[in-house]
Amino acid sequence: MSDTPFNRAAKATPPSVAAKIRGLSDRAIAWIFVLPTIFLLLAVNIFPLIWTINLSFTNFRANRPNREVEYIGLRNYERILTDSDIWLTMQATAHFLFWTIFFQVLIGFALAWLINRKFKGNDLWTTLIVLPMMLSPAVVGNFWTFLYQPQIGLFNYGISFLTGIDPSSFQMIGDVTLAPWSIVIVDTWMWTPFVMLICLAGLRSIPDYIYEAAEIDRASKWRQFWTITLPMELPFLMLAVLFSGIENFKMYDLVVQLTGGGPGSITELTSINLKREAFEKWRTGYASAYAIILFVTVFGLASIYVKALNKVKER
């Protein structure tokens, strides 16, 4: 018997244990390995989900342990789906999601394409570009509130320098029309490097010989981009959209630090609204129904999207 780690482990196993294992089928051994994970999954994910579904049909409030809990059927769901304020937060979330994904993919891909060119200082630029995503969202939110400050903020002075308008004449955070864009700008600034890294991985995975063959065929750079780069990059772009979408759908800390959901409720995303319902107003049953609606929405959309992603990969 050769002296491999496997053989050493086999030798070290006590005969009684070895006999027991020898009596188990492969399937049984597989279950022994998988069971702890399944148990953990049930305890951490599935049970809370079932419990939340159960709570969503009640008037339970976590801050009133002494109050009798009543089953109220679909009333929480009905209230949420007919509440115009909830639909406004959905709109705010949709605006935030669409534009952050749009700008992050656009700018991220452009940056990846530029970084993929070989030039002097390439590594330094890559490091500088990914710096924002290394910061804590709370820190980013805080310092951007200073940048956006109408009287002393650098952002306003930058805009003033470029356009000539008075820096204190507009308020990024306090203005109803500008506030939704203020959070889009900051999130784009912070998370574009992440999209860039995914795109860069995609670009570097395209073999050089394909471009060389295209060069021999005298394909123009523009043609190479549309027929080689973009199709081969598409699965990576779609992955970036998926990650950005999931990440931004649950966006909380950055926006809370930046605008607190205001002015009014203009930037109150669903995650902020849900947190207020669940842990400030303590409407636990109502918030559970709200969370289930969001879960079904995200799960449904993500499933459709993943199917589309797989089809693109298969091509």
Partner: peptide, 23 residues
Amino acid sequence: EPAYAELLLAMQKRLHDYVVADQ
């Protein structure tokens, strides 16, 4: 009231919507 937090958050929203956000 025991439901003070819920009552307060409602007022916060309505007042901020009107005063600051011009809604």
